[in-house]
Nucleic acid binder design. Structure first.
Lengths: 159, 159
DNA sequence: CAGTATCCCAAGCGATACTG
DNA sequence: CAGTATCGCTTGGGATACTG
């Protein structure tokens, strides 16, 4: 993700992780649906009215996310109420949290109106604001220009 | 982004930062274009052949990204060659790096084939792998469940 | 090379009506 | 409530041809 092209242009980008991730998150509605579920809105009707999408589209997105293993549909029951269903994140779905947080950060920093961000994400422990930061496995903070691209084992030359 | 709904369901989500960010990154092609530019592929033709998109679509996406202030088109000249144009990230565009890295991480972790990821992001300084991690402004690492949602100054009730 | 213009087909979408 | 089915409309997208 930096100034680099050591063969990057010669590999098949269809197998790239970003491309694969985008096949899940590829459209606006899907991202918004996931935001709702991350924020605790889990019922069909609640999601629908909150993001203002048509029922058919929501049903289709939820079905796809279920097929992909991002969400699961499970029955639950509040005392004295009839059985309902809710959508929960699977471990795969939870893996998307940094993406959602990074999107939220970006919007906060660059796209907020004069009043500032509408939603704040706070660290439950200390109350400080949360962001998705670049770090390395040796626990250093990584600056924007400090990323070196390297081909991995799954790289395939393109036809 | 955690178990929470302290009024979240009552605010207008159209102004949410995630929604605003998705208006820029909302479709597959745009994300792939940005990946190319982050990876140093900056010329129209190179981007086009590398991601396999039609010229009309690429032109439209680049125009939109330029309008939105994510990319800028600038002339440059290699010695002995004629003038060319290239697309560069603006500061706004660079702000999207954590999103791209988070998408890449997600694909690596959850969607890679048996051979592992096709591309590795390394910290230029130490060579360790880079990821987009949740941290707070007080520099703590933040666990997936340790985020508390709070309404910010820009929150608007929904109609 | 880096686009723009046109054509035409496929997909996405909301509105509405229907179902368990 | 939580969907599915159908209907048109609008948009997206590749292919092709054209332009500076």
């Amino acid at each position: 993700m930096a100034e680099d092209l050591l063969g990057w242009t010669e590999i098949d980008t269809g197998t790239c992780s970003v491309a694969r991730a985008v096949e899940i998150l590829g459209d606006r509605w899907t991202v918004l649906v996931l935001r709702e579920v991350f924020n605790g809105v889990r019922r069909f009707g609640d999601i629908q009215t909150h993001i203002g999408v048509s029922r058919s589209v929501l049903a289709q997105r939820l079905a796809t996310l279920k097929e992909q293993g991002v969400l699961e549909r499970r029955p639950y029951q509040e005392p004295g109420d009839r059985v309902r269903h809710e959508y929960r994140l699977t471990p795969l779905g939870r893996g998307l949290q940094p993406v959602l947080v990074a999107l939220n950060n970006f919007g906060d920093q660059f796209l907020s109106g004069p009043d500032g961000p509408p939603v704040l994400l706070r660290h439950a422990d200390c109350g400080a604001l949360v962001s998705a930061a670049l770090v390395c496995a040796d626990d250093h903070r990584v600056g924007p220009r400090e990323i070196r691209l390297e081909l991995g084992p799954g790289a395939r030359p393109r036809a």
